[in-house]
Design a protein around this nucleic acid. Structure first.
Lengths: 135, 135
DNA sequence: TATTTTATGAGAATTATTCTTATTTACGAA
DNA sequence: TTCGTAAATAAGAATAATTCTCATAAAATA
């Protein structure tokens, strides 16, 4: 729990019980929706407000503690893993899995450096890999 | 307009005025939301029902006429361009631009063929390239 | 400890999407 | 061409996700 406290501190955020609980929940659930987080948190802390969760998530994004994940759904998902990585998306369920591949990142970086896209400043490249998980 | 009629026919869909109007609108707006489409369509055809637009979009996806685009927002965007392609996402606006690059597609296909990801059947790889458009 | 700023809770408001039901329409068969 | 039927549409209610408002509470810091 002190690690989490530290993360808030490093980003210059005030340390509140709600923020500690929410950040820990993000680390414990894979790519959660706001609702996933609320349900998870309310098992132990029944009185956290929904609006608070949304506000805290927004703040975390602002300071770079978490990111939104892109999906096709009208629901937002969050990701607490901040190193560059990609995602496998199940085409027949809502499961999303991280895919970390630094070799690939280098290949892409090199590719686009040579490509010289001239009207766009690339900040980040993320692959969405759609398909089916084998059981 | 006959091309659009033909697209519906090829997919075995009944040809209705609403479907023709909606599909044409999709081709005329870049990566529209349902609301973009409704507003655009209602300029000329004020009596199309919102529910109809959603149902038609769903049907179009089902038969492979359009796709949903992944975004970070709790709003769904649609894309009528069905060849494999990637997207530039503006990090300071909602603008999305297509990026077509068959060389890159081949490189990625090759890369993942060699990589032999063993618990996942890849169906489609899409790059999200985030950054800023230069003015 | 007092002060000030910021965060939180509660619930109303808003927005996007889905659902329901009655009516209408497209289109193949007669 | 007309008819029958399954499918599509309109209208609006219902739902779900998110944002907003504002009064209260709690952090940080002087």
């Amino acid at each position: 729990m002190d690690e989490i406290k530290n993360k808030l501190f490093e980003k210059g955020l005030k340390i509140t019980p709600q923020r500690l609980i929410i950040l820990e929940a993000i680390y414990n659930i894979s790519h959660p929706t706001a609702d996933d987080l609320i349900k998870y948190i309310r098992k132990k802390h029944s009185n956290i407000a929904i609006g608070t969760v949304y506000k805290v998530l927004e703040k975390f994004i602002e300071v770079g503690l978490i990111k939104k994940i892109t999906t096709e759904k009208d629901i937002v998902r969050y990701d607490g893993y901040m190193n560059n990585h990609h995602h496998f998306y199940s085409s027949d369920s809502t499961v999303i899995k991280d895919y970390i591949d630094e070799d690939l990142d280098k290949i892409l970086e090199e590719y686009f450096k040579n490509k010289r896209i001239n009207n766009f400043n690339i900040e980040e490249i993320t692959l969405q890999i759609k398909g089916k998980f084998k059981k």
